[in-house]
Every structure is written in C-alpha cells, then in structure tokens.
Write a protein that binds this DNA or RNA. Structure first.
Length: 285
DNA sequence: AGGCAGGCTTTTA
DNA sequence: TAAAAGCCTGCC
C-alpha cells in the first residue's frame, strides 16, 4: 500500500537516532530508480516485519495490508502526533542550540515500540556502542524468538517473549555476547514472565512511579529506566541523560536546562539534541 | 544519608 | 588501549 505523510518523517534520521536497533537499510535494487531518496528499510518490531520505501513527495510504500497499517504501523510511527508543531514551540533566539538541533534532525519521531523489547534492548545497551547493541539484540532474537518469513520470503526472528527469554540458560544468554548483562536480562525476563512487573500498566502510571518501578529491576538504573519510559511507554516527557546528554547540558546549558518550559515534550527535544550532537561529533573525528 | 571509586563482559575504532 | 545511550557493590 502507499501512504502519504505530510508531517516530519525521515527514515534515515529515525534509523540513526539510536532508539531502534532492528532497522536495516536495504541495498538499492539496480532496476528501480537510483539516488533520488527512495531508500528502503526493513523494520523488525516485536513480531512484525515491514519493508518501507520512500517514494518522494511525502509518499511511502509499505508491504503490509490496510489493516496491518491501521492496527500496528500507524501507531508504531506515532503518526497521530504533529512533530512540526512541537518543533515550532522552540524559539531560535531564546534557545539557538535546541532550535538548530531540531532543524537539523527534523524527521525524527519517537516510535511507539514495545515496552518489554525496549527494556531488554536498553539493558543490553549499557556500556556499548550501537553495532554491538544491534548484534546482541539479533543474537537474542535468533536464540529464542519465533522464526518467521517476511513478504519477500526471507526469514526473520520475532523479538522473544519474556517466557522464552526466561527459559534460556546462562550459557545461551552468554552466547548472545551479553557479558555481565546476562544476569540483568535474565532477571528482567523472570520479572516480566512471572508477573512481578506489569509493563503495560506503566503506560498510564505517572512518571515518578514509572521510574521507581523500573529502577527496582536488577540492572536497571535511572538512565535505562528513562529510555524505557520514553521509547517503550511513550512518556514523551521522559529525559534520558547519558554521557552525551551530560556533555550537552554542561556545554550548552551551564545555568540549567529549562525542563518546565519544554514539558511535556522534553523527550522529543532530548532526542533532537542527542542525534544532533552525535552528528557534530562524528564529523569532527 | 548520599557521593564516589572500582569492577564488570565484549566490541569497536 | 580507550571508550562505549551504565549499573552494582563496597567504602567513606
């Protein structure tokens, strides 16, 4: 099916924004048009797989049915939200850094990803770079996720259920190159499978309670809890502070960051700044 | 009580 | 060899 997205939406920007680790850019087909921005991504989210191609003129081709789009992917891409309007709340004179970040990273959206998948993914992310995170997530999915076939006839592995992950042995987890995070992933799987934590319920919980419950999990600190809150529960005011954000806050906001002014969109602005700063750093190297 | 150093697995550059 | 979307433990 073909859809039109008038609001901010940039597949490459989202793919590089560090919130999703199972997006893969496809090699361009030699027969289809070259160059002109018609990128294709293969996206695995939860148990689903989607090929999405940008066609230009705000149009996108998706290899799913209307129903799959309405029931899943439309929400996944957060297409009910108006990001252009959220960007317009930033004053270029009052906050030039955030304005430049939002302008440069225009097209990023906060995906509505599965809470359990985000919990495991960001536990895995600690002290690691993005290629290593992607590798471990993929290995874990292969280890205990459902094997399925996409519309192109290619195999993929659904993200594992909590029960499937909880059933893995120490050796099997270790084979996913999780290192010392093995015991954290195991504890999270036990908690989610055994019902001692109800991630879905946290979607409607307030932020202090959400963070308090998430950080009660072994291996989940304030940073990972904020990532789960933002990317898995869609609490878009959550503001994860990692080593990069610490640098940004120290360099650009020595007198303090105006969280109150930007509520309830702090998480979205954080994502613009995070991506922009990493872009600037990569160019200097 | 709350802050801080050291350690932890593995990969990447 | 250091750094990587950190967190836990023990010590003060």
């Amino acid at each position: 099916m073909i859809i039109r997205i008038g609001d901010d939406f940039d597949l490459n920007k989202i793919a590089e924004s560090g919130q999703c680790f199972r997006w893969t850019k496809q090699e361009p087909h030699t027969l289809s048009g070259q160059g002109a921005g018609n990128d294709t991504f293969r996206i695995i989210a939860g148990g689903s797989c989607l090929y999405i191609t940008s066609l230009g003129d705000d149009r996108y081709e998706l290899d799913c049915t209307d129903e799959e789009y309405r029931c899943f992917w439309q929400d996944y891409f957060d297409l009910w939200e108006n990001y252009r309007s959220i960007r317009s709340r930033v004053d270029p004179k009052q906050d030039p850094f955030l304005w430049k970040a939002a302008e440069h990273e225009k097209g990023i959206r906060i995906l509505r990803q599965d809470a359990w998948e985000m919990l495991v993914t960001f536990i895995i992310s600690q002290n690691r770079n993005i290629p290593a995170i992607r590798r471990s997530v993929e290995l874990l999915s292969e280890a205990c996720g459902d094997k399925r076939t996409d519309s192109e006839g290619r195999e993929y592995y659904a993200f594992p259920t909590p029960a499937a992950a909880a059933a893995l042995t120490q050796e099997e987890l270790s084979a996913c190159r999780l290192g010392y995070r093995c015991k954290y992933v195991h504890a999270a799987a036990e908690a989610a499978a055994g019902g001692s934590i109800d991630l879905e319920r946290l979607k409607t919980a307030d932020e202090p309670e959400t963070l308090s419950i998430l950080t009660s999990l072994f291996g989940v600190g304030i940073k990972v809890a904020n990532c789960v809150s933002l990317f898995g529960l869609h609490h878009i005011d959550a503001f994860p502070v990692d080593v990069w954000m610490k640098r940004i806050l120290a360099e650009q906001y020595p007198d303090g960051y105006p969280y109150e002014k930007y509520s309830p969109y702090n998480g979205i602005y954080q994502q613009y700044m995070f991506a922009y700063y990493r872009h600037l750093s990569s160019k200097q190297l």
